[in-house]
Amino acid sequence: MKLTWFLEHPALRRAVMLSFVLAFGAFLIMPLITLLLWAFADRWFFPNLVPQVWGFKWWGWILENTDITKAAKWSFMIAPTVTLLSAVICLPAAYAFARFEFPFKRFLYVALLASNAFPKLGLYIAIAALFFQFRLIGTFWGVVLVQLINTLVTMTWIPAAGFSSVPRELEEAARDLGASPLRVFFAVTLPIAMPGVIVAMILVFLGSLDEAQATLLIGAPNIITMPVQMYTLVGNYPEPVGAIFSILLTIPSLVLLVLARKFLVSGYLAAGFK
């Protein structure tokens, strides 16, 4: 009897799939629900299933804590800077990879992957040593630069896939009707390629907000972003503090998820790797 005999019986197949998805869903969601419960718990002792006392006691404490508001400020200064700088550096390259022929094109395209092919912490340590030399440790721009590394592939490959998906006939038709190359780019090419660009920018923005390892190594002690702050919160403060902070830190991601869901499902995420 084969291992997959159940796949031949529709009812069994449904049952197996249902339990697999349910188990997987529980694995993903239960930890997040635990955090939610903790965020609204004033007192919760093991082994109670739910908090003994519900409340908002810790929310006020968090919102008044200056360390935490400062961390939020740094996070929301760094993430947009990284996103914009990355877009300025990478988007022209993405267009070039999609539209022009030039020597070593294929090699350079794949070479960008080198930024992802290094084990991250090893690379960050090498960079930290370099930044010591250039006095970039503990500075805003040091953190921006180190975060830039992780954006190269995302910001080049995904928009490049977007640009290549624009039918050349459309651009040529616009040219035939007398549009200038710049006009063609802004009126035809860019709007069609926009979903790819938007997905890349969202991913880069979230990646920057989420980044903790490099920021800790390069930014400390001056630049403490929200995820870095999380390292110290865990263990040093009662659970509700970490839980509330987690919720605050996840809100931007969720907002972006809702805003961008139209683009995210359209298969752009994996496009770059093909």
Binding site: L35, D210, A212, Y231, L256
Partner: peptide
């Protein structure tokens, strides 16, 4: 959409 630090916590 969940930062890694938070996921671990």
């Amino acid at each position: 959409f969940v930062p890694v630090v938070i996921a671990t916590y």
